[in-house]
């Protein structure tokens, strides 16, 4: 009986096994890069919003974050301002600006503006703004230079590795409490001496247990 396979079939078989493994590794690598990348996490992506609100403009006027995000120091959620907060000034200034028409309509119809969320973590992640603020983590550490964002975008991936990097090394990111709301903060002394000092002073622990966030 004649040989069914040519002699070279052995080589072809070996090469295709190796090729298949290589392909699987490459494919999973690509998927990994894609799903953990900045693009998929909407980093620096500007979303459509009901009103063209500029953080850059308002922050540079000197209006404190907490004028609008009133609950950021006391609760898990930073708080979005009700339309009345916008109208505290805009009932009198820029009263006929087209840009503010959705805000005026919201007030007139008693219907809240429905902003499109920019920063979020999945529902299986517990996140609390107030504890980060009170332990000396600046807005900027997660939200980036909001004072340079005409329309707001997500500055960081907010993936678990992003959270863990800081939870493992809080001394690299901590700042004095009075600087938490500062944009473009530069430590007055080197972070390698200031960081550990503040960690001790504010009694910051390295919380890296799963249940710290997944509770």
């Amino acid at each position: 009986m004649a040989q069914v396979f040519h002699r070279a079939a052995n080589t072809v078989a070996r090469a295709s096994i190796a090729g298949l493994i290589l392909l699987l590794v490459l494919a999973s690598g690509l998927l990994w890069v894609f799903f953990r990348g900045a693009y998929t996490q909407s980093v620096e992506v500007i979303k459509d919003q009901p009103a063209q609100f500029s953080h850059k403009h308002h922050v540079n006027l000197g209006i404190d974050c907490r004028y609008c995000h009133t609950t950021v120091e006391t609760s898990a959620f930073a708080g979005l301002p009700p339309t009345e907060t916008c109208m505290s000034c805009h009932s009198q200034i820029w009263t006929h600006a087209d840009m503010l028409e959705p805000v005026r309509a919201s007030l007139a119809e008693n219907r809240p503006l429905q902003w499109t969320r920019v920063n979020w973590v999945p529902d299986y992640v517990y996140f609390n703004h107030s504890i980060h603020i009170n332990k000396g983590i600046g807005c900027e550490s997660c939200h980036g230079r909001v004072d340079r964002m005409p329309l707001v975008w997500r500055a960081k991936t907010l993936l678990m590795e992003f959270c863990l990097e800081c939870h493992r090394n809080p001394e690299k990111h901590i700042r004095p409490r009075e600087e938490v709301f500062t944009m473009g903060y530069q430590p007055k002394q080197s972070q390698s001496t200031l960081g550990p000092k503040l960690v001790a002073e504010y009694q910051v622990r390295k919380l890296t247990d799963c249940y710290t966030c997944h509770r």
């Binding site: 898990a76 959620f77 979005l80 999945p122 529902d123 299986y124």
Partner: peptide
Amino acid sequence: TMDTDPKYEAM
């Protein structure tokens, strides 16, 4: 599905 579960989050 666990990314957005049926509970209401703030707002």
